[in-house]
Design a binder for these strands. Structure first.
Length: 437
RNA sequence: CGGGGCGUGGCGCAGUCUGGUAGCGCGCCAGUUUUGGGUACUGGAGGCCCCCGGUUCGAAUCCGGGCGCCCCGACCA
């Protein structure tokens, strides 16, 4: 993509409404545009990242055996009356009336709907286990939306729903998601810590929330320092292995939010205790038969009896995760995208657009990267170098390849790693080799 | 929902108290200049001053009503 043709409305100054760093940077980097309180339009740069995150989440869900479908955003109130949550959910649920005066709602979550789909088609225990998920926009009419997409009213969420014949099997489903979640965050370069959590309006008796560590996180977190050394991607068992041991290991190390942390009764000696800040980016629940009983979702068991299915649900705030990543990965100049979710892998900076030789080399590099399938944003504008550098740092692409007449005279270009600031001068060939490796 | 604040060119703000032709910085356009970390100069374009009503010779400014947005708190992926 050529920057001269890319819709990227960056801002030099920070809009006043933005208080936290991710919100500021997303506005300044031209990623989002607020349209109402807690509701945002995703501009091309932001949307690219959103899709990257979504895709990574999808890959891990698929790998864990979940199957993707897509349910509507607008739901009928009927199902919610059946489960009893139409009244319980309160004002957070956006209620809508259609032209026939039918009660509808913009879904805040999909337990009822998925349970309805399930009961319509699944009749036998032989069709279990089953895990269905979708990545869909949700709406929760928060009293006070804030912090940009971190606490928006409309947000993109991956929600998966597992169905099993008995609690043991449901536990395994839970463990699978537990692992998939940790893998998902790890692949995004995030340190995520699962913690026992309240189940809130979803209900149920077993739940973990996943907190990523970020200096600017909204809540305080305490954990054993061993957490910081764990490498999920190395520890992760294959999907067929028994996940119990993995689950036990990862839930046995101390971790608690400040609300639940009691310094007086903390099992971790002070010297091993890490105090940090975190952001909740996922929540998984095992709630048994809460919905299946209320909605009569049963299957025929091995002995011919009708058994209400054991269910769990598993959410990841996809749009929130973007803000979380920025909170966890930025510096005073802007965003630092982890490679896995970066909108482009390379920012190619032409320091002197219009200079024949510089233009030629840039074009050559641009074409070579495109051919190799490397996402590249080519700054072909005739802005001053300072402007280009500042903008490149702001939008945070992992690699900056800087090409100017001065370097070309010596046969070199400059490759900068955004995360570390390291720069090296090297030939075009070596730079390309490095970027396409 | 309780408490606080804000709404003035795209963005950041001044002007409101004390009514009298709407300003500044950044950005944008044109030109000159500059050319490796937001360059300098010159000349431009761009505003229903959130909306409706009232007071007044005259309202961004005063009064009444409405809408929107932000911050703190209780609540949440």
């Amino acid at each position: 993509m050529r920057l001269s043709r890319f819709f990227l409305p960056t801002l030099k100054e920070t809009p006043t409404e933005a208080q936290i760093v991710s919100h500021r940077l997303m506005l300044r980097a031209g990623m989002i545009r607020q349209t109402s309180a807690g509701i945002y339009a995703w501009l091309p740069l932001g949307y690219r990242v959103l899709r990257k995150i979504e895709q990574l989440v999808r890959e891990e869900q698929d790998a864990a055996g979940a199957q993707e479908l897509l349910m509507p955003t607008i739901q009928s109130a009927e199902l919610w009356k059946e489960s009893g949550r139409y009244d319980d959910y309160g004002k957070e649920m956006l209620r809508i009336t259609d032209r026939h005066d039918r009660e509808m709602l913009f879904g805040p979550t999909n337990e009822e709907m998925i349970t309805d789909i399930f009961r319509s088609f699944v009749k036998s225990y032989k069709q279990l286990p089953l895990n269905l998920y979708h990545i869909q926009w949700k709406f929760r009419d928060e009293i006070r939306p804030r912090f940009g997409v971190m606490r928006g009213r409309e947000f993109l969420m991956k929600d998966a729903y597992s169905f099993d014949i008995d609690p043991d099997s449901a536990k395994r489903a839970y463990h699978k998601m537990f692992l998939a979640y940790l893998r998902t965050y790890a692949r995004m370069g995030l340190k995520a810590i699962p913690m026992r959590a309240d189940t809130g309006p979803i209900g149920g008796d077993f739940s973990h929330e996943f907190i990523i560590l970020a200096e600017t996180g909204e809540s305080g977190v305490f954990c054993h320092k061993d957490w910081l050394d764990l490498d999920v991607l190395k520890d992760a068992p294959g999907t067929d292995d028994d996940l119990q041991a993995f689950f036990d290991k990862y839930t046995s190390i101390y971790a608690a939010t400040d609300e639940k942390h009691d310094p007086a009764n903390c099992p971790v000696p002070e010297s091993d205790l890490v105090s940090a800040r975190g952001i909740e980016v996922g929540h998984i629940f095992y709630f048994g038969t809460k919905y299946s009983k209320a909605m009569n979702a049963t299957v025929t068991g091995p002995n011919g009896e009708q058994v209400p299915v054991e269910m769990g649900s598993y959410g990841i705030g996809v749009s929130r995760l973007m803000a979380g990543i920025i909170e966890a990965s930025h510096d005073e100049n802007g965003i630092i995208w982890p490679d896995a979710v970066a909108p482009f892998r390379v920012g190619l900076v032409n320091l002197k657009a219009g200079d024949a030789e510089t233009d030629r080399v840039c074009q050559e590099i641009y074409d070579a990267l495109e051919v190799k399938g490397v996402d590249v944003l080519y700054d072909d504008t005739d802005e001053r170098p300072g402007v280009k550098f500042a903008n490149m740092d702001l939008i945070g692409l992992p690699w900056h390849l800087v090409v100017g007449p001065r370097g070309l005279k010596n046969g070199v270009v400059e490759l900068k790693r955004r995360a570390t600031g390291e720069r090296e001068e090297l030939s075009v060939e070596s730079a390309l080799a490095k970027l396409t490796a």
